[in-house]
Design a protein around this nucleic acid. Structure first.
Length: 647
RNA sequence: GGGCGCGUAGCUCAGGUGGAUAGAGCAUUAGCCUUCUAAGCUAAGGGUCGCAGGUUCGAGUCCUGCCGCGCCUACCA
């Protein structure tokens, strides 16, 4: 409804300016800082002042006088030095909400691909991965809520160095056979085992530099797809992927397809991309200097900086392709530009939702059509922005300008640990690290907070709270509620920061359920539901809002300034989502969710709904309650947070 | 050296395309549970928006230069 009015006002004002002044200007609308300035403010007179050579106030006065009536707008007032403040017709507005009036969806056509999570399948997921997955998943939910078609991809690098290092750990250090590793997998917590083994292998390399040759041997074996190391790599990567998918499912994060590096290799995606890059002269063969014998992309392709810019190696002198090269091939495939496709099969473990994995040979008759996106978002941390620039430069060099422009590096800053949290978790720090504001999480060093540990801790804390408040409820139900609260807390915590804020992870703060947190918002939604439940318990009549609240009744009730402001706040979910999509900031939705919850809590204390004696007012308050609940639920759903049945 | 980012209340952070009196949470202090469950509400204190210039009717926001911090700048991913 808000959107609808915004559009109507913008149209009316821009039409007027065009016909009277012959100028086309984008009409900006903002929400005034103070509510007594009305619901919307137009600073358009300031924009016009220079061109018309008139004082802003004069222009605004003229506009207000001549604009004529706009449906749903009750008045236009000139304020300040030339603001045009808009007051909405409250009864029209509320009645519009009740009858479901909406602006037409402006969702873009074509498919949007969002790639996120992308964890190396060689160890347990940690909080840095959790931020990536929650950011990506929430962005997907935002796009879908706005009506876009979205495909979620989680890229699995199952043939890389990190997997190789764990293979080295099992094969060379632990001397385990594939059968023995399979036993370890079956025993459970395999991702935790690998977490430690990976750290141990990394340390071993450091202490025994010559052993790095094991990594090379292993990588060759994996690439050739032969030998015991290749077999181990398969076992390990598949088991860890399964663990990651399960962990992410706990967080309400799901995917459509898992494209794997092994298929990019086996199906020769790179060879195809390589031919294109050579043919279009996007890369060249270096014959001198430090990159002698490599295929490189010139630095000028991905940097504004002219002289002395380092070239980026795409193919090493030993003929193997770098990660960036493979990523260019993958990006081309996402846009349907590679001329090749994967084969697919259903994910081999039951999850409760449809998930597909790539294969290198036909397995099933029919699989969904993946790829061929018109827009691609890669959720990758900001440290990789240089590499993402190279990938986009690759597309540009191939002449795919449109796709290069539609490739978005959805970057975010890392999650680090405060020294205090490290000490609390028993992580030893160097004296240098102790002086830093935060310490970087490192899988290689085994330094970090594992996702499942954090979730378990949160659930335990939530369960304590729930059990003490609801000893009468069953243990199973309390357990489920505790889970929903824990995930609500974690998702909200990861989303409340804007993307380029470094999260200095503080355990106490993350475990908080008070103030600007997920549980605060959940609690507001639960409270709204409680009023409704109580109504039913008392056997009171459930009103028919559409019949009992006509425009006149809405007008009478909304003469109350407090109610009006609260209704207004609750009604702009779509505005918040749109703004968050445009700016690429899921944090805006989280912020909005918190504000609506605050508004509801104000309402809750200000207006005792069930005790209201005036019949019309009681019906109206019940409607407000229901509307708040509905809007809170919608907003939380976009954030991937459930509303518990009680709290 | 170069590229990118950050610097706003004691702490953690918000502050769409420059706009009206710079906000929130936490922490602190003082209140509110016989009420639709207090995971809540009300109120108070707390600011040289890193520093210095500039642009203009107007700058936390844009430009330039400094200062401090972080990340990147691999034939790792």
């Amino acid at each position: 409804m808000f959107h609808l009015l915004e559009k109507r006002i913008q149209q009316a004002v821009s039409d007027y300016i065009k016909s009277h002044h012959g100028i086309e200007v984008p009409v900006a609308l903002e929400q005034p800082k103070q509510s007594d300035f009305g619901e919307l403010a137009l600073p358009v007179a300031f924009q016009l002042a220079r061109q018309l050579k008139q004082a802003p106030k004069a222009i605004a006065t003229q506009l207000a006088a001549n604009l004529g009536a706009i449906e749903g707008v009750s008045s236009l007032e000139v304020a300040g030095n030339g603001f045009l403040n808009v007051r909405l017709d409250r009864s029209v507005y509320a009645h519009g909400i009740l009858t479901g009036a909406q602006a037409a969806s402006t969702a873009s056509v074509g498919k949007t691909i969002v790639e996120h999570t992308n964890i190396n399948p060689n160890k347990a997921a940690h909080i840095g991965h959790v931020r990536n997955a929650i950011l990506g998943d929430t962005f997907v939910r935002m796009l879908r809520a706005a009506g876009s078609q979205v495909e979620v991809q989680n890229y699995i690098d199952n043939t890389g160095v990190q997997v190789a290092d764990v293979v080295v750990g099992f094969h060379y250090l632990e001397k385990k056979s594939p059968a023995e590793v399979q036993q370890l997998i079956d025993a459970g917590k395999f991702d935790y085992l690998c977490w430690d083994l990976y750290a141990r292998t990394s340390r071993y390399y450091k202490d025994n530099p010559e052993s790095i040759s094991w990594r090379q041997e292993t990588l060759h074996a994996i690439e050739a797809g032969a030998g015991v190391q290749a077999e181990l790599a398969h076992l390990i990567a598949d088991a860890i992927v399964q663990a990651h998918i399960a962990t992410m499912l706990r967080l309400n994060v799901t995917y459509d397809v898992l494209p794997r590096e092994s298929e990019i290799l086996h199906l020769h995606f790179w060879a195809t991309a390589f031919e294109q890059l050579k043919e279009r002269k996007a890369i060249y063969f270096e014959t001198e200097g430090k990159n002698n014998g490599c295929w490189v992309m010139p630095g000028s392709a991905f940097s504004d900086f002219k002289e002395d810019e380092d070239s980026k190696v795409i193919v090493r002198s030993n003929g193997t392709v770098t990660y960036v090269g493979k990523d260019i091939a993958y990006q081309l495939w996402k846009f349907g530009l590679l001329g090749r496709d994967f084969y697919y099969q259903p994910f081999p473990h039951p999850l409760g939702y449809d998930l597909w994995v790539t294969t290198d040979h036909p397995v099933v008759d029919k699989a969904p059509a993946f790829g061929r996106g018109s827009r691609v978002y890669n959720v990758i941390d900001s440290r990789q922005s240089y590499l993402q620039d190279v990938v986009v430069a690759g597309l540009k060099a191939l002449g795919y300008e449109r796709q290069a422009a539609a490739s978005v590096h959805f970057s975010y800053e890392m999650v680090a640990l405060t020294p205090g949290t490290c000490i609390e978790l028993g992580i030893e720090l160097s004296d240098e690290d102790k002086r830093r504001p935060y310490v970087e999480v490192s899988g290689r060093k085994g330094l970090g907070v594992k996702a499942d540990d954090l979730i378990d801790t949160l659930i335990a804390k939530a369960a304590e709270e729930v059990d003490s408040r609801h000893p009468e409820s069953g243990a199973a139900v309390n357990r489920r509620v505790a889970g929903q609260i824990a995930i609500g807390a974690l998702r909200f915590f990861m989303l409340k920061f804007t993307r380029n804020a470094i999260i200095a992870f503080d355990l106490r703060e993350a475990l908080s359920f008070e103030g600007e947190t997920g549980p605060y918002v959940q609690y507001a939604a639960v409270r709204a539901g409680n009023i409704w439940r109580k109504l039913a318990e008392r056997g009171e009549r459930i009103p028919d809002f559409a019949k009992e609240l006509d425009a006149a009744a809405m007008g009478r009730q909304l003469a109350d300034e407090g109610c009006w402001q609260l209704l207004l706040q609750a009604s702009i979910v779509d505005v918040a989502i749109d703004r968050a999509i445009t700016s690429g900031e899921p944090a805006h939705v989280a912020k909005y969710a918190f504000q609506v919850a605050q508004a509801f809590n104000t309402f809750y204390h200000e207006y005792p709904v069930l005790a209201e004696e005036n019949a019309e007012k009681k019906v109206f308050l019940l409607w407000m309650t229901q509307y708040f609940r509905q809007q809170l639920e919608r907003t939380l759903d976009v954030l991937g947070i459930a509303v518990p049945e009680y709290m």
